[in-house]
């Protein structure tokens, strides 16, 4: 029993990390149909900027704020200078642009920062909380709570604000949205800004657990993308569920099956799920018009 609880706690921790990355993927996709492979780099920038600004003597909360602002600016710049000029290009070309951007950002990070690993102090101390025989880090709870809070905020934004409704309209039908006066360009820019900000927050919160370095984004993007697709891309709830599921699968596979093949087990299950539910758990099937 204690063992099961420990696996669940591990799965939730890792899963919440994936979920935060997946949320960024899903938001941009919803507004623009683009899969942004630079999302992992947003996460990296959040963590690394905080580390280096704090090292320069700035108090940690302020450093974190600076990191979020800087990453958001990066996200907006990515949209303005790389995505916007390529408007109308095919999805694969847009993906290639974001892959180019991720190589570029990684390259910049290793020059501006360095190529070593870094950590940040946890928010609520490092002493584990004992729960039915399982030891849980307070920081894991912080990450979980933040993922929940971000989903709630996103839902409130989409549901309660006019701008949010514009996002929904854009997601549903870009042309129709433009006809009823939605500035779809601004909506897409906004989605890049918010996704970058979510990525940065994620990066800051997970660094005390997972550490960070200039190339931390690649694997996170991979797992986050898989999580978003498992949940059904475009659905915020799906992103969180997808992320947590992958985290749990990895933990259970490592605990009960074989730690050698835990990533393989996770991807095998993703394959099986996608083959039986081709639009992901929470996704809606698209109707093709001829």
């Amino acid at each position: 029993m204690a063992e099961l609880l420990q696996f669940i706690s591990s799965g939730l921790t890792v899963g919440a990390i994936y979920a935060l990355v997946a949320l960024g993927f899903t938001l941009i996709y919803k507004a623009s149909d683009i899969i942004n492979f630079a999302q992992g780099e947003f996460v990296m920038l959040g963590g690394m900027t905080t580390v280096f600004v704090a090292m320069a003597g700035v108090p940690l909360p302020l450093a974190a704020l600076i990191a979020v602002v800087a990453t958001t600016a990066t996200g907006l710049a990515l949209h303005r200078f790389a995505i916007e000029p390529a408007r109308g290009a095919s999805p694969v070309v847009l993906i290639m642009i974001t892959i180019g951007a991720s190589i570029f950002l990684r390259g910049v990070a290793q020059i501006v920062f360095d190529r070593r690993f870094h950590s940040l102090p946890p928010l609520l101390g490092a002493d584990p909380i004992q729960l039915g025989g399982a030891a849980i880090l307070p920081q894991s709870l912080v990450v979980l709570a933040s993922a929940t809070a971000i989903v709630t905020l996103l839902w409130l934004f989409v549901d309660r604000t006019l701008l949010g409704k514009a996002v929904i309209a854009t997601a549903a039908n870009r042309l129709a949205a433009r006809l009823i006066g939605v500035d779809t360009r601004r909506v897409v820019a906004l989605s890049f800004g918010i996704s970058a900000a979510i990525g940065a927050v994620a990066g800051i919160l997970i660094t005390p657990i997972a550490l960070t370095s200039y190339d931390a984004g690649t694997l996170l993007a991979l797992k986050g993308f898989a999580a978003a697709m498992l949940g059904g891309i475009g659905s915020a709830a799906g992103a969180v569920v997808g992320g947590v599921l992958i985290g749990l699968m990895e933990a259970f596979a490592a605990g009960y099956v074989s730690s050698n093949y835990k990533d393989a087990v996770a991807f095998l299950i993703i394959l099986v799920v996608l083959i039986s539910i081709p639009q992901g758990l929470f996704g809606r099937a698209k109707v093709e018009r001829v």
Partner: peptide, 20 residues
């Protein structure tokens, strides 16, 4: 014997097995 991926962020399941 247990293993972990080079970029994994949590190894408690493997260590739980070792502890047990």
């Amino acid at each position: 014997e247990e293993n972990y991926g080079p970029r994994d962020s949590d190894m408690t399941p493997q260590l739980t097995n070792i502890r047990n």
